[in-house]
Design a protein around this nucleic acid. Structure first.
Lengths: 190, 190
DNA sequence: GTCTATAACTCGATAGAC
DNA sequence: GTCTATCGAGTTATAGAC
């Protein structure tokens, strides 16, 4: 797990570039210039751009898992959903970034199978977590929706991803627009 | 309005490429080879890639307006919403394409201001149309939601765009997955 | 590990013949 | 209107010096 310091810098800058401009929207040169190293150094750690993409999805997914576990360990049901939405909002709030996996999902036809599968795992993991949350909320009376937890989960994830996508294109007050849609979606469950 | 035959071919092939691979995911060379002409011929009709993108958004938006008018002229309220969702589903059904404006929205940081604004107009137009539909449905009792039509409209558009994005990455049964989420979203309004 | 240098190719775009 | 030819710059990626 202990990753080299340069590799870390690369991952951080690459993540930002990917979430802002997409997989086909940045180059090794962009990263190298921003970090202050040469492109060959990036290739040393991530031989191909596909390797870099996979590392980014993996790291993003892992970080997400940790946050989800944190949320689950706390009290509240509706609050969980709001904290969950906040994870996405944070991307938007700093540099108007899109969800890393949402971005790659839009470029799915330019990606290798292994990256594609890593994105699918991110989405299914999120739907699974949300589904469990919905089921719990239905049990304890927090959510009044009678639809199947799986369906509501898929709906929520779609709404959140779509809300980011559209809010981001508005550019101005994108966080506010995202928050409105999210609050509306949560409201209609309670 | 009468557009040259070659220009038409370019627009058709470019639209497919854009919806499949994104603005940064295809080149003039790709289009030229698929059509059977030279890249310089494309530059003759669309001097820059930005010109091409703007033409594509404009054409896509115009086609959408015509379809929305058709739907509005028919009977039904909930049915309108289902026909509306079908417009998006049709993209998914053939070659697993994403919404053209959804795709460009993800790449918003690589686009010129005029293209960005054209995308924003597409989204606001859609939200306006949906908002009117929701308001009508609330009046005639088709929709039981008491939220503001504007909010519900923004929510629906986000859900549909996000559902396309995620379903597309699943690749298998993507239409089915999209349909499930859409039906769930419509259901919860009635 | 990081660099220089470079290969091999693709990109958007333009000039000018036909 | 479509072509050939080409420019200048960008792309991913690698070989080899230090």
């Amino acid at each position: 797990m202990a990753v080299n310091q340069t590799a870390q810098k690369i991952l951080i800058v690459a993540q930002k570039n990917l979430q802002q401009k997409g997989f086909n929207g940045f180059s090794y040169r962009d990263l190298a210039q921003e970090i202050g190293i040469k492109t060959s150094s990036i290739h040393y750690y991530f031989p191909t751009k596909d390797d870099l993409a996979l590392a980014l999805v993996t790291a993003y997914h892992e970080a997400f898992k940790i946050e989800l576990a944190k949320i689950s360990s706390e009290d509240g049901t509706r609050l969980h959903l709001e904290r969950y939405a906040k994870l996405f909002e944070d991307n938007l709030a700093v540099d108007n970034k899109f969800c890393l996996c949402g971005m790659l999902a839009s470029e799915v036809n330019s990606l290798s199978d292994r990256v594609k599968q890593a994105i699918q795992r991110f989405f299914t993991d999120n739907e699974l977590w949300l589904s469990q949350l919905i089921a719990d909320g239905q049990s304890n009376g927090s959510f009044k929706t009678i639809n199947s937890p799986d369906l509501v989960a898929a709906q929520l994830l779609a709404t959140f991803e779509g809300a980011m996508l559209i809010a981001r294109s508005a550019e101005k007050d994108s966080v506010l627009k995202f928050r409105l849609v999210v609050q509306g979606a949560i409201e209609s469950l309670c």
